[in-house]
């Protein structure tokens, strides 16, 4: 553990089983980890290693079979659906690989969605300023009125990031946000995430199987067969070369 602060997020002995047909699949087999406030953490690993499942459980989209998740000092593993929804609304922000935006809403409306859902009007007063600030922060100033189909794939993902950030959640969870993008546009998205972490102190958990993306993180958890196979501490750096990480992964035989 590199951090000495009280963790903002803790996973304790998480397991998750799915039943597929007649046999059970163990997606998580006892995962424990903690994330400090303001930290940028990446989960890496091959397909089926359990990293996305863990992300969904950490964000309150899914429940663990056993174990506990503590977010901001509160155990969220046994929440009812309504409580989990409230948690998502107030404490977490998501960015997915595909289909992050509502096609019929423009950029401003998509970014303001969390406020709309919460029953407030994102077109007025302070909330309007926050929406605008989030759009500015992802370098989409001037494209507020564009609809998703009028944006490039990278721009669309940045809108998704702006939406995840707009409520200033305790935790932003990004599941392969660059998986569908080329290197240049992927970098734009990662830069935006990194900036929010460094400048706003936003805690970020990133799921990826791309070492170049993971290299943006302060720490990388490597998943193998539903367990944390290794933890690689990269530390906060000015540049994000993936070379050290790749070397380390090679050592692990990944």
């Amino acid at each position: 553990m590199s951090s000495v602060q009280v963790p903002i997020l803790e996973a304790r002995d998480l397991t998750k089983q799915y039943v597929v047909g007649d046999h059970a699949v163990e997606a998580l087999r006892g995962v424990s980890l903690s994330v400090a406030p303001g930290e940028f953490v990446a989960f890496m690993g091959p397909s089926g290693s359990g990293k996305s499942t863990l992300l969904q459980i950490l964000g309150g989209l899914d429940r663990p079979t056993s174990g506990h998740v503590v977010l901001e000092g509160r155990d969220i593993s046994g929440l009812t659906d309504t409580e989990a929804t409230r948690l998502r609304r107030e404490s977490t922000g998501f960015v997915f690989q595909f289909f992050n935006l509502i096609p019929l809403l423009d950029v401003r409306e998509n970014v303001g969605l969390p406020f709309t859902i919460a029953g407030t009007d994102p077109t007025r007063g302070e909330l309007r300023d926050r929406v605008q600030a989030a759009i500015d922060a992802v370098d989409l100033t001037g494209k507020e009125r564009n609809r998703p189909d009028q944006l490039s794939a990278g721009e669309q993902q940045r809108v998704a990031v702006a939406r995840a950030l707009v409520t200033r959640p305790a935790l932003v969870l990004a599941d392969e946000p660059t998986g569908n993008l080329d290197f240049a546009t992927g970098t734009e998205v990662l830069e935006v995430l990194l900036r929010s972490c460094h400048e706003q102190g936003q805690t970020i958990v990133l799921v990826t199987h791309d070492a170049k993306a993971a290299a943006y993180a302060d720490r990388v958890f490597v998943f193998v067969d539903g367990r944390v196979g290794d933890e690689i501490v990269l530390g906060r750096r000015a540049e994000h070369s993936a070379t050290p990480l790749i070397a380390r992964l090679a050592q692990l035989g990944l």
């Binding site: 929804t85 998502r88 609304r89 997915f96 859902i117």
Partner: peptide
């Protein structure tokens, strides 16, 4: 379904 999934992930309740 995906739109609704996004909305739910963003905090829309089942009742909503």
């Amino acid at each position: 379904v995906r739109e609704i999934g996004i909305l739910r992930a963003t905090g829309l309740t089942r009742a909503q």
